[in-house]
Amino acid sequence: MSENKEKTYIRSHEPVFWGLFGAGGMLTAFLTPVMILITGLLIPLGIIDKGNFNYQTLHNFATTWFGAAVILVLVALPLWHTLHRIFHALHDLGVKRGRDWQMVFCYGFAFAVSVFVFTLLLQMF
């Protein structure tokens, strides 16, 4: 076979998003179930006492560097996982139009919420 012209390969930037997807997916797999259980079910239904999930304790926690970082990661990182999946699921569902805009919207959304939470945490200091 004669193939004279060397094919040009274009590197994808997917590793950036895949890395965030993986980190978010890992966090979601380990912690999201228990988080939903505590904040969404056990406390609202009164099955367990509010305990440390009260305004004063949480506010004190959020105004430490460590606490702020933990809250930012717990709230924002799963979004980089989920929006990545939603972006690819749109392709799976055959939504072909405007892939570029779908990408901007999906990752832009995760970015915007991350910045929103980050700003709130900064304000609380």
């Binding site: 390969y9 274009i10 590197r11 994808s12 997917e14 895949w18 690819h88 799976d92």
Partner: peptide
């Protein structure tokens, strides 16, 4: 790796 790194390389897989 040049083939792997492309969008149509491994990154086409979900």
């Amino acid at each position: 790796m040049k083939i792997v790194n492309q969008e149509e390389g491994v990154w086409g897989c979900t």
